[in-house]
Every structure is written in structure tokens, then in C-alpha cells.
Amino acid sequence: MPDAIKSLVVNGTTIEAIEKGQGRPILFLHPGIGIDPAAPVLTALARGGRVIAPSHPGFGTSQLPKGMTSVDDIAYFYLDLLDQLDLHDVLLVGVGLGGWIAAEIAVKNTTRLSRLVMANAVGVKIGDRETRDIVDIWSLMPGEFNALAYADPKAGEIDYKNLPQAESLAAARNREAHARVAWSPYMHNPKLKNRLHRINVPTLFLWGAADRILSETYGRGYCGLIPGVKFEPIAKAGHFPHIEQPDEFARRVLAFAEAAPAAQAKRI
């Protein structure tokens, strides 16, 4: 549905974003593999509001501003985007790398946010210095990634040889853009762990239970650092529950958004 893809200019940087639905704003932040404009999850989420799903700077066809080399930079970029679009009561949803970006946004400023959903998020270091919390995706053999990332590895298969040129370019840009911000420290910001206490909006931590890129120990450890958070596993889904269980994913997100404010007091 190319007509749903829009260009947004933030501080002189043009990014692409898919927009669907109407009502409360839902900012969906994609994982390191990028976002498929036709992803069913976007349609499912659009039943509950106005979905805005950008490609992060450097991903897809989005421009990369000079000096943008970290998730921290991307988080500030999205805070600017929220200001520019003057969005309020935003439901912020991120998967994997997008969950990390969402957390970095929420520790900085939640003024424009109402709720936060992080799914199979990376971004912190949980184990000791000699324990690799997160599988090194750039050391995996072809095929191994899908076997570890998906409940059903077939869900991750892409026929790269027959991709249209634009899509192969986007895939190549995604891989590079992901490594730009996550190569080292690998998939985390050592500072984030001690900032997560600042998150003062109700937060849901979704967990594709078949994820073998991350362990559930990692997910529960991460979750435990966020005040008043809810942890909810999703069955038959791995590292990308929004791809493997799009309807269930959207149902959990929208149910959380509709629920009465959680017991946790909103600080400020």
C-alpha cells in the first residue's frame, strides 16, 4: 500500500513513515530488520488508532543525518518528531531495536507519551561481562538467524535473489544501519540500565516466548528494571512477535492501551 507511505522532514532530515488509521497516535518503532510497509501488524494496530511507523534514520529509504551514530541520537530524533507533529498521549511501541529506542525516549521525556510497549527489546546488559546476553547476529551462518529468531524459521525466509532492487537496497541499508548503532557495545547502552527508573508511564513488556536471540532470563531481568511494568509472553512467536503473531500482538497492545491506568502512580 504505497499510498500509506509518507515523507516526514524532521530537522532537515527526510524519513519515510507508514501511516494508517485514525485516532490516538501509535508510534511503532521497528526492529533492526526494518519494517515491511505491508506488515499485517500495522493494519491490526490501526484498528485502535493512528499508526505512524517510520523507518529509523539510515534504515529503508530514510536519510541519515551526519553524526547520527547511536540509539541515543535516534531517541532524540524521535523526541523532535513528536514535537514537530505535536502528538499527545502517544502509545509508543517498539520491537527489538525499536524497544531499545523506545526505552531511550522514555527515560529522556515522557511528556508526550501515555503508554509504552516494549517487545523482545534489546538495550541493556544483564549478565556478567563474560556472558553474552544477546546472540551475536553478525557471527551467525546463513539460516541460523531465522532458526533462532522465529518460532517458525520459515516466517523469516526472504528470497533475496528475486527481490526488487529497491527492496534489496533497503535490506542492505537496514543491515548497515543496525550495525552502526549496535555493533559495540553490542546491542546495548551501558548507561541505560541506571536510567530506566525514570520511566513514568505504564509499561508493557511483551515477550515472544520462542525467542532464542534473547533468553527469557534476559527479558525478565530487563523488565525488572522498569517501574511497575507488566511482562506478558506471547506463544508461537520468537524475536519478532509482531511478525509471527500480528493479531495477538496488536490485541495485547490495544488492550493495554485501553485498560484503566495501572496501579503504579504516574510520577511528576
Binding site: 533475496y160 535473489k161 528475486n162 527481490l163 532492487q165 534489496s168 537496497l169 535490506a171 542492505a172 543491515r175 548497515e176
Partner: peptide, 8 residues
């Protein structure tokens, strides 16, 4: 560009 060509 080179990586995209390799993918294809």
C-alpha cells in the same frame, strides 16, 4: 550498493 548486488 555492493551489498544489495550481493543479495541479488
Amino acid at each position: 550498493d555492493d551489498n544489495a548486488r550481493m543479495l541479488r
